[in-house]
Nucleic acid binder design. Structure first.
Lengths: 208, 208, 208, 208
DNA sequence: CATGAATGAGCGTTCATTCAT
DNA sequence: GATGAATGAACGCTCATTCAT
């Protein structure tokens, strides 16, 4: 296209540099605001914090929803990655599980939109990131079960729902009483241990 | 329209009859829609279902928030009352506790605004109703502890937060997989039993 | 509903008075602005000219489209009514036809949105008003044909399309050269007279 | 990329080659989309189809309006040229006139922006192309008049306005009922024939 | 005192135009 | 020069709240 510049193999040109900067500024700003206020934020607020105009934001993300999904996908993926790595690095299956919850909930605590989305879609994850996360939980579940540490009958689904559930607690308490959700986590994890009777169908729940 | 109160005898109070009826119609309508749609509901929808005009609604409740608080206060109170009665009627302290959760979560599952608000205010309950509910939980907690059934170190706060936390799970799963939250409840309750080590401060959480 | 006011048969209460005033102010303002600027107007401009807020406008007309249709329907109906009356009042079938065009085009000349809509929907009229208008043209057509004054082969469709076509001319010339479109009308009407050969299928058009 | 112009010999003009190519790509793309969508088209769409960036487009045409005018000027000129040639090639003055309309309207039918602009500016043609076209119509008018075929009193202005007017009809009907506008053309042309009384001033229009 | 119409700030989104690369 | 990313004023529309009747 260019007249004669021998720009060799650089197909996608240069100016992308600041476009990428902006794109990331937007994502970062969005991540912040979404963490603070959830998905109900005003798009203008994101643009403002990102230091860009509305047009720029909408160039990169044609719909508010696109931006949100992009941000959340990224965060879920990062979360899943670090969780997977941590799981691999931790030999003790039980410690791996508890560490996972500890870290995961610490993350949930500070991110409203993450929780909003996780809550809405955990059972039918439409974001790649959430699926990744699910795989990690599956891994942790399998390892703990194989080691005979996990209460029989407990499935990945249970662990995921527990995550969402405790995530709510983490979000509510982290700011003022950060130890509260840790106590709850402790209780739940103990309930997950193999010392208990196999987890049975709901009808028996009343008997505990 | 009027109920039959002799106009002359009550002079300045006569309209109250209607006012009260309206007030209650509003509250009832609000309870319905708040349960269905949460606090994001359009005020018009409430007025419509209550069969009153916007002006009437705003005369009774100058801010949307006021109405919501009034409704929730009432529902929390009713909840607390029935929970207290059930607690009293159940001799076995542990059964009382598990029944409480079972009932409470069933309620949470169907009431969006209750959960929204419970979540937001459980730690600094500004609603009389929540305080009442807290008292019930305190009672259940004390009875179970006195019977040596409750894990040492578990406090009312923990049980309340667990309620909010599982409430989230109940809300998310009740419609499609109603057994899911029951499983989680089962796990958590087992974690609360005295068979476990005393619940310790957060620092030790990592050890589980 | 009211407590005891014996408002007898007045079902719909009083306050409607100014609501109706507003509704009409909006319609009037919209008619003005639509005539001047066509359907591309900013809704805020209509609200401003009508002396009402956005909310009022949207209370009466939930979509911009609704307002436009209401205004146009009303104007087309008024147009059709006066045209029908004029047609009935004029004995000479040919004079009735020419008068109709004269009046109709005078109207078109000043109303951008009317023409926009007429142009878009004349062949599949979705507005009651346009259908009414069509009936009037049908009547005029039939009468002129019955009197042997109308060129054989000319149908209502032709007369309607001619109206849209000349409407465009009227709109373009009325302000600066108001006699221009009248000349065109004269030419077209003469082309419609029975003195000419029957109107034939398009293939012969080239022969004229 | 460069066509082969010796860089040294042309120094400051070399880039022109590309600039001109771009300019023409833009014009061609614009012609396409303007025909399809009219002047309401998004400038991005033009740049995209032309394979150039926005900056390039705006370097050549500082305002959207400038581009539109340039494109339309070109198309009107081409139209005028072919019309003039056809007029010259056709001996029979009346056939020349009818052929002109037939061709012209076929063109109008498919070109939204041409009509939009023609409509807006026919009376004060600010586009050279429209002036050219006017000359052709003048020629056709004069020849037909000289041959005694054209109704006395009909002027170039009338024929031009008729063109715009029927152009509207052509545009509206061409896609679904392509014979409709041809019928109208037939009627109008017959109205233009010398068999009728001289065309008189508007005041007499009512008499038809 | 009830009514429901009126208000207007604010939201998500688009697009002609400008400007850094 | 060419590129296409950036800008921001508008647009259609919503809804908590106020106010005339």
């Amino acid at each position: 296209m260019a007249v004669g510049v021998p720009e060799s193999a650089t197909r996608s040109r240069a100016p992308r540099v600041d476009a990428i900067r902006n794109r990331e500024a937007i994502i970062e700003a969005a991540a912040e605001v979404l963490a603070e206020q959830g998905t109900a934020v005003d798009v203008r607020e994101i643009a403002r914090r990102g230091g860009v105009g509305m047009g720029t934001l909408y160039r990169h993300f044609p719909k508010k929803e696109d931006l949100i999904r992009t941000v959340l996908r990224k965060e879920f993926l990062a979360w899943a990655d670090s969780a997977r790595q941590a799981a691999i690095d931790t030999e003790d299956p039980w410690l791996a599980l508890t560490d996972f919850y500890q870290e995961a909930l610490t993350g949930c605590a500070r991110h409203r939109a993450i929780m909003e989305n996780f809550a809405l879609t955990w059972s039918v994850p439409d974001l790649e990131g959430i699926q990744e996360l699910r795989l990690v939980v599956e891994l942790l579940c399998a390892r703990a079960a194989a080691a005979g540490l996990l209460r029989p009958g407990v499935a990945t689904e249970d662990l995921l729902l527990l995550l969402v559930s405790l995530g709510q607690a983490a979000q509510l308490t982290d700011e003022r009483h950060p130890q509260m959700w840790t106590r709850l986590l402790c209780i739940s994890l103990d309930g997950l241990r193999a010392v208990h009777d196999p987890l049975v169908v709901p009808a028996a729940a009343r008997r505990s």
